[in-house]
């Protein structure tokens, strides 16, 4: 019994040590664990001339596409406080639209624009049937370009009809 108890305490002590060591390490390396930086981070100028990932929302009305041999798109990525102009030559992902989250890989140019070599779409954790989204938009309860949708528990009453199963 005492030996079992001793083994248990040794295990608890090891667990506490390992856990706090991991927590310290993770908080120390927190800056390099992020997948992307925000436009505000980029504007602050710590990331100059390095290849970084820039993440944020595509600003309203900022998307311009030009055809030609290779499609080129310019848009602004914003985090609310700051926004950065991004140029990208290539095919944008299906989910790309104004108001949508994106993560772009590239470098900040001397003129303040961000030249991206890759654009990934980042979607949020909301899953909504098409009919519900249409009904919410029609009834004026939600504008997808303006912000996140209302809580899921209110969808049925706001949309005015039950989502089919």
């Amino acid at each position: 019994m005492t030996r079992k108890r001793r083994r248990l305490w040794i295990l608890v002590a090891c667990g506490l040590g390992l856990g706090s060591a991991t927590a310290l390490t993770l908080s120390a390396f927190s800056d390099s664990l992020v997948f992307f930086v925000s436009p505000s981070d980029l504007v602050k100028g710590t990331q100059n001339a390095r290849t970084v990932r820039l993440g944020g929302l595509v600003e309203q009305g900022s998307v311009e596409r030009s055809g030609g041999g290779k499609p080129v798109a310019t848009f602004r990525v914003t985090d609310g406080a700051n926004s950065v102009k991004v140029t990208y030559a290539g095919i944008l992902p299906d989910l790309f639209r104004e108001g949508q989250g994106v993560v772009t890989l590239g470098t900040l140019q001397p003129d303040g624009t961000f030249r991206a070599s890759e654009v990934l779409a980042k979607h949020d954790e909301t899953y909504m049937p098409k009919e519900v989204a249409d009904a919410l938009k029609r009834s004026g309860h939600w504008n997808p370009d303006a912000g996140p949708p209302p809580p899921a528990s209110t969808w049925n009453t706001l949309a005015g009809n039950k989502p089919g199963t």
Binding site: V34, F35, G55, H123, Y127, P129, A152
Partner: peptide, 26 residues
């Protein structure tokens, strides 16, 4: 929740209401 990730946060949590239609949750 701790870091910026491409992966979206959890839709179903112990503390909050799920951010998902019931017809998908079931």
């Amino acid at each position: 929740d701790w870091w910026n990730t491409l992966h979206q946060p959890a839709s179903i949590t112990l503390t909050g209401a799920p951010t998902m239609a019931l017809s998908m949750l079931w």
